[in-house]
Computed example of a mutant assay.
Amino acid sequence: MSISIKSLRHKSEKRYQFMMIVLGLILWAVVAYWVWKDWNEPRIGHFVQLYVGYGVAVALFIWIASAAYRASAFGNMILIGPRQFPELHQMVVDSAREVGLPKPPTTFLYNSNGLFNAFARRLMGGRYVFLTSALVDANNDAQVRFVIGHEIGHHAAGHLNPWLNALKLPAFAIPFLGKAYSRSREYTCDSIGAYLSKDLHASRTALQMLGCGCRRLNSQMNCDAFMEQESMVPPIFGFLTEISRTHPRLTRRVAAIRDGVEQASTMRDRMLDAEPRF
């Protein structure tokens, strides 16, 4: 039985997504009206046409860059599959199946020269996940499952839907709103990753490893001690430094995982109880 992403979606994301869609629609309508009204206006019409041309050029550049990145990935990175790191491939397949994706994302492993990172992208209409060698090397299997689940979560939750993102695009111009929306999406994917990993402790330590980055100390990490550092963050400057970031503080993310997984487990139990039994 696949888990409902709705049960894992962070409550703040629901609110911010609604705001982004509504404001995006309004701002796109304003832009469309402005273009229609002033397209042939003698004084500023040429500026309007120029800006529209810039917009088309940017969209074309993004499409070309996506095609180039895809070509570079297939030519230089390691494509994970049944014959190439089959254990990692199975993690991707199992996670995609459990969240209801019709097809597992194409997944690559690449040499990051020590950089810890993983990310999900849509390229030429396809779903992709990228894992750095340093991250896979430093984490154990349960932690890697969390990371893979987190990135697949971006696809399953619709965070990379190109049409929906285009609709919300103008709303990112509103100060701090887009960053707050991005942080809420990270909370959602942390919950998805933790649920798919089936190991709460490994999920929390996988996040903590982003701050630690030391394979030798991986098994010695204390998540409770790490979460206690949150109380040491100065309130004012902690707020000021976070409102301009796309990702929440690691201390907050580690603390939030338990709540997200417990909420999903409760909802799933209710769904199972509600199913007819014969």
Results as ranks from 00 to 15, higher is better:
I62C: 01
G100D: 04
V93T: 13
G55P: 00
I78W: 07
G45I: 01
H89C: 09
A71P: 00
M77A: 15
E98D: 14
P82V: 08
A67W: 12
A65D: 11
A73W: 02
A68K: 11
K103L: 15
E98I: 07
V48H: 02
F85M: 14
S72K: 13
G75H: 10
Y69L: 14
M77Q: 14
R70P: 04
R97I: 04
L101G: 07
A73H: 02
P102D: 15
W63P: 00
Q49S: 01
F47Y: 07
I78V: 15
G75D: 12
S66H: 07
W36G: 07
V58T: 01
A57I: 06
W63K: 13
A59S: 08
S66N: 13
R43K: 11
K103A: 15
W63H: 11
F47R: 03
L50H: 01
L50W: 10
V92C: 03
D38K: 06
N76W: 12
T107Q: 06
N40S: 07
I44V: 08
A67Y: 07
P104W: 01
V48N: 01
K103D: 13
E98V: 10
P102N: 15
A68N: 12
V58M: 08
I80Y: 05
W39N: 06
Y51F: 14
P86I: 07
W39V: 10
F47L: 11
I78H: 11
R97A: 15
S95F: 06
A68D: 08
H89W: 15
K37S: 14
H46Y: 03
P102E: 15
A73E: 02
A73I: 03
Q90I: 09
V92P: 07
I62T: 02
G81H: 04
F47T: 06
A57E: 00
W39Q: 05
H46R: 06
F85N: 12
D38L: 14
L88V: 15
L88A: 11
A73R: 03
G53P: 05
R97C: 05
A67V: 04
I64F: 09
L60C: 09
S66T: 00
W63A: 15
Y51W: 10
A67K: 14
W36F: 09
F47S: 05
P104E: 04
F85Y: 14
W39D: 05
N76E: 14
S72Q: 13
I78Q: 13
P86K: 05
V48S: 01
